[in-house]
């Protein structure tokens, strides 16, 4: 993986809402980029060199529910002091964004908001209609 590698994050249907009725814009909450307690500060993503967004969605949807895929660049994580690590745990291409350097909930919140902004500006890499 290089700084220009894209990584894909699955978004749970309850983390999405229709923002604009007329233009059918769907927005995700910044919580989509916040690791839960179970994640132990490691936010799971797919390595874009091994999965495109649709492939990542299909792979994830075999076992879990997702509504779509938002994507950011590795460089966008590094810029805000988040390392991206491909550990290949559970499947080849499994990667995580490492939030372990964050010492407070607010630090995580800020970084999640910045990641969400970068991802939403790029637009949905894949959205399940």
């Amino acid at each position: 993986m290089t700084p220009s590698t894209i990584i894909h994050r699955q978004v749970h249907p309850d983390f999405i809402q229709q923002k604009d009725v007329s233009s059918q814009i769907f927005e995700a909450t910044s919580s989509a980029f916040i690791p839960t307690k179970k994640d132990q500060k490691m936010l799971s993503v797919y390595n874009g060199e091994k999965f495109d967004a649709k492939q990542a969605f299909d792979h994830f949807a075999l076992h879990y529910v997702s509504k779509g895929v938002l994507s950011v660049l590795v460089s966008e994580c590094i810029t805000i002091s988040l390392n991206v690590i491909e550990d290949n745990v559970s499947f080849d291409g499994h990667t995580y964004i490492d939030f372990s350097g964050c010492t407070s909930g607010n630090q995580i919140k800020v970084k999640a908001k910045l990641l969400k902004k970068a991802a939403m500006e790029r637009g949905w890499s894949y959205y399940d209609q």
Partner: peptide, 23 residues
């Protein structure tokens, strides 16, 4: 606002623009 549940049992209202992300 956009209104979401959070995993830790709270709800979160969000207002995001190109300039700000408020929650």
């Amino acid at each position: 606002p956009s209104t979401y549940p959070t995993v830790d049992g709270k709800i979160q209202l969000e207002w995001s623009t190109d300039l700000y992300d408020d929650s």
